[in-house]
Write a protein that binds this DNA or RNA. Sequence first.
DNA 1: GGCAATCGTTAGTGACACGAACAAAGCTAG
DNA 2: CTAGCTTTGTTCGTGTCACTAACGATTGCC
Lengths: 147, 147
Amino acid sequence: MDRLRNLRARLLSQAAIHSDRLVNEALATADARKWHYAVLATLAEQGPGSQAQLSARTGIYRSDIVAVVNELTARGQVERAPNPDDRRQNVITLTEAGRRQLGRLDRILAGVEDDLLAPLTGPERAELTRLLTTLVDHHKGWTPGVS
Amino acid sequence: MDRLRNLRARLLSQAAIHSDRLVNEALATADARKWHYAVLATLAEQGPGSQAQLSARTGIYRSDIVAVVNELTARGQVERAPNPDDRRQNVITLTEAGRRQLGRLDRILAGVEDDLLAPLTGPERAELTRLLTTLVDHHKGWTPGVS
DNA sequence: GGCAATCGTTAGTGACACGAACAAAGCTAG
DNA sequence: CTAGCTTTGTTCGTGTCACTAACGATTGCC
């Protein structure tokens, strides 16, 4: 009995739903969504890149990257310029405003994580991180469109 | 650096996405979705109930329960009858076909969980279950519509 | 007997994951 | 050099899901 409560797939879903709600509510106060953070953080850490690279690094679909970059350019947080070396590509660059926004989002998300992980001790948080990382890495081989 | 990989909120999302995809693909082979399983399992364990009760027990919105029950009745897996004691309510009952379907789905999901948790040892799986349960329970107080 | 709460239901929103197809550009093999 | 394959950005569309708002019918409470 109580299969629902013990199904790991369901536990994962439920936890992710709560987590996503917290994250989205918090980011909304800074006029951002999770994708915005993902792109800004990736640009800050890995430097400028094409949209295809951003897609690979963030896990956002290449069809959805377009809108995200549009929104970020509209907010002046990134710049989109054609790549002279390969005219198929765009080069996306973080602006100063983007860097400031990333700082804000970092602080917001730190608060959310505290909230989210409140019932767990320090070692438990570390263990959860480790287990989840193992899971995510294990299923990494999957690529959309490549059945 | 590598904030994305260390954000628990993001790890949770990513793991849930992989998990949900596996679950949905597997359930689709039996003409079912995760909601179907949630309702069937709840009925089997807690007995017949109103749609409001099902909503509370499964976490499905009461506005979405309608469609799920419609689909399950169309497949002959549950029955919807008005409750004579309270004519606002319907009583949803599991049929024999529903019980058989639940058995099928149970086997399918067991396979999925094996797949999903493949990289984890037995104790690790137990620990993950415990941590996730703690998280989910902690944020249980939240009710939609009640800000 | 009137009011608030409950229940099922419909309709709609917005975010997401994902697919199909296309034009432009680049790469590779003959 | 040319024909063919691949990559890139982009548009449009699909299905699922969480969630809100509103409504008629019913019921419980005072």
